[in-house]
Design a binder for these strands. Sequence first.
DNA 1: TTGAAAGCGCTAACAA
DNA 2: TTGTTAGCGCTTTCAA
Lengths: 339, 339
Amino acid sequence: MAVRLEDVAKLAGVSMKTVSNVVHDYPHIRPATRARVEAAIAELGYRPNANARRLATGRTGMLALAFSDVSVPYFAELARVVASLAGDRGYRVLLEQTDGTLEREREILSTREAGLVDGLIFQPTLMPTAELASLRGIVPLVLLGEGSAPLSVDHVMIDNTGAAAEATAHLIALGRRRIGFVGHEETAPAPTTLQRLAGYQQSIEGAGMRVDMSLLLSSGSHGAQSAADAVRRALADGKSFDALLCRDDLAAIGALRALQESGLRVPEDVALVGWDDIMMASFTHPSLTTIAPDTTALAALALDMLLQRIGGYDGLGRHVIADHRLVVRESAPEPAAAR
Amino acid sequence: MAVRLEDVAKLAGVSMKTVSNVVHDYPHIRPATRARVEAAIAELGYRPNANARRLATGRTGMLALAFSDVSVPYFAELARVVASLAGDRGYRVLLEQTDGTLEREREILSTREAGLVDGLIFQPTLMPTAELASLRGIVPLVLLGEGSAPLSVDHVMIDNTGAAAEATAHLIALGRRRIGFVGHEETAPAPTTLQRLAGYQQSIEGAGMRVDMSLLLSSGSHGAQSAADAVRRALADGKSFDALLCRDDLAAIGALRALQESGLRVPEDVALVGWDDIMMASFTHPSLTTIAPDTTALAALALDMLLQRIGGYDGLGRHVIADHRLVVRESAPEPAAAR
DNA sequence: TTGAAAGCGCTAACAA
DNA sequence: TTGTTAGCGCTTTCAA
């Protein structure tokens, strides 16, 4: 059926080893031999079989990247940089989506089949630390994003609490005093959310104010829609606020839409800060002030740690922090420009 | 090193075949035997090796999905539905990004290694029809989206020309008379773009008007940024228009931003129609009227044809049209509601 | 510089 | 119902 290494060898009148040498351009081959083999390869249209190769070498050249859903812009943008950096390092990336269900997260971590990928970069949504820890070791693993990672597993994140504190401080510097939070889960907030809320609280209390619990506008699920609904509900309930820290840019976009519908001006009446700096954050009107994680650094750190694990490194989990910065745009401008 | 089927067989005191039967839950196994084997599997933590399996069966259970860039929302949303539908059919999806370069498109089509995936769904950006045709046959292939596909290859698209004509007719029904087009390439427009332009022209001329070439606002590259720039430039040049048909929602979002910056009202001063119905189209303010391809149908059609090819079907290329509809939102409302 | 042959771990045809 | 065994196509010692 398919053309095999052996067929090439036969046609070229050499051994399989020689063909293999040519394919991997092993240096010490007589030019004439090489030419003959190359001609045979071309004539037959030979293409090495990936699976046979992998079975023989035990290496796949593939990495998996798992998270809930590619259609979430942050993840799509992350996938892009991970794929690109992985490519530079000689790996391709298999995307795995969990739909944010624990069952799918388990499936991916326990990886029913061996040898599919050499390693896994995983941003959990639901899986608790303890389970994560118990599943480590099956495949080289690096965790992304979540607040709490087991000590035994490598982990990259940004300083969520610090970033939330900065963002909140920015709003306070703008003279805002009734600062709400939008987009956290109604029940069982994720670790990430808790960290962001902690930073938010820290800055508010640091400025001598108190958190008004009624301004924590939780939303049923992530995404713009439910954030918009949360803001609409708050407005309908007569809640008043002059700024909103949003769990992510999607929530900010939903909030923006809800505010504009009800005739409120952003940032004059309500200032808004998002999180993630997705592409759309530059194109809303007003554009979004947002926390921009250094996604490239994040991905690079994760990949490098993963490659070390694949290479056999077996120490304790390393927990590293990637950079972030507050990108100031129109929805919450520099204090000088405010008012 | 790793636990093999043979190790399990040995421990359970049965043959490899029996273990294999258990793993694939082949029905006719004595319960006692099954229990013994399962115990051995659990004790050893056995997981079958995917590559050995693939080598033996010649089937990978993987499909590749290739396009330029996942961080483009339309592609991210497409990837999500393809992955989900493929999952229902027992396949996983390997994402391949071409960055819109011909070189990468070639790499993916010529697929240096055999046996990586069972088939490929590919949305080309640059590759010309002729080359596409010559590369077919290496791997089961279905093409997506582009206007011109070789007769020999399966192909799914929406009726670009028809949809563009509808969208334009909608703008005309709204009373718009100076309708521009935004977001097409400056040079060498893609087939898709040409089809959309054709539909645009068709409706305009069908209404007894003429296309004003100065209202074709080409942009350097795709994306919101360059569309915004194109609109800004047009405005600066004093061009006047009362509607814009945008090549895609990203272009519409960029155009919207540019219009709002210059104080124009949408849809009162300029109505806008986008294309793709990405999630963000519902959350801009005003929300976007847009052409919504039936992405689910599109993906399902592509997958089914691909599975047939994988199953050995070898007929001529089938060219099928997936549905679309004009989703009317605020940026170009129903005529009745206008003014 | 090139050849021969033993795996890599699993499947599946054929027996028993 | 279970066992035997010959591949799947490539890599990789070890010789020559």
